[in-house]
Amino acid sequence: MGENMASRSVATGRARGDPANSESAQQLVQAAIDLMRERDTLDVSFVDIAERAGHPQGLIGYYFGNKQGLLVAALERSIARALAQLESLLAADYDPVEKMRMHLNGIAEAYYRFPFFNRLLQAMVRDGSPEYAARLTQRLIQPMMDAQAAIIDAGVAQGVFRPVDKKLFYFATVGAADGLNAARFILGGALGQEIDAESSKRNAAAIIDFFLAGLMSRD
């Protein structure tokens, strides 16, 4: 594979390589993730990503077609571990209350580790191509919604949870998990409080207490 082929991919906007089987492609994805996390912005350039990864920027076009393709890969990589853990949680022999507790803690932890995630997901679904929007909905959003709904349904069936609007509950929990990270400049600049592992744990505990209290059956 030469740089000329990579350059042609940038021009056409079509990926020609297989990023899943390329160490170079995965290094580019990780570089994009690291830069967005460190700078707390979605505005990272091909030049910066390629420089951080140590590869020619033409490889981004070769493996991902364009920046949208790279950012979709960054989203999928960021949430991959959380989705795998969620699948294991659903299969585990825990009661619905404990499953929801662990699930909410996992959401808070994921948003602390990847504070750009919700902003990037919203931007890609809103501004990306219909193909990318459908892909992200199918691979990232729907599995999370379905898993959370399954936990709620199990709790309702056992009489420990009350029926709720599951879609609204999902977006409320995601918003709460993202809220602390979205306010990092207010916390840091105006209030002098940095978001660290300890504050993230307190945020997770507050989310768990708040949403579990709202879910519990009142009978």
Score class of each variant (00 low, 15 high):
N118D: 13
L215D: 04
R39F: 03
L191K: 01
V164A: 08
R113H: 12
I79Q: 10
F185G: 04
G2N: 15
E198A: 04
E38M: 10
K167R: 14
L42K: 10
Y132R: 07
V44F: 04
G65D: 01
F210C: 01
Q122K: 08
N118T: 13
G192I: 06
A80I: 09
G69T: 09
E87F: 07
P143A: 05
G65T: 06
L136M: 15
S22K: 09
F211L: 06
P56E: 12
V10K: 14
G61E: 03
A15E: 10
Q26W: 05
I208Y: 02
D219C: 01
S78A: 14
E98Y: 02
Q27W: 05
E194T: 07
Q26K: 15
Q57W: 14
Q85H: 08
I49V: 15
Q158S: 13
F46W: 12
E76N: 12
R162F: 01
A133T: 10
A134D: 15
F114I: 10
L120Q: 08
E87Y: 07
R81G: 10
Y63T: 10
I151L: 01
G54L: 12
R14S: 13
G58S: 13
D178C: 02
R162Q: 13
R202T: 02
D43P: 04
D209W: 08
V160M: 10
K167E: 15
Y111S: 05
F171V: 05
G17V: 07
I151W: 02
Y63A: 08
L86A: 15
Y111K: 07
L168Y: 08
D40L: 11
I79F: 12
A176Y: 11
P115D: 12
Y63L: 06
D48I: 01
Q122H: 13
D209C: 03
R39L: 14
A82D: 11
R8C: 09
M36E: 11
L83G: 06
R184P: 00
M145Q: 12
A206Q: 05
G128D: 06
G175R: 00
G214I: 00
L104D: 03
H55N: 09
E98C: 01
G2D: 15
A80V: 00
R81H: 12
M36S: 05
D48Y: 11
Y132P: 08
L90E: 03
Y170Q: 07
L215T: 06
S88M: 14
D178P: 00
V97L: 07
I195D: 01
A157Y: 11
E131C: 06
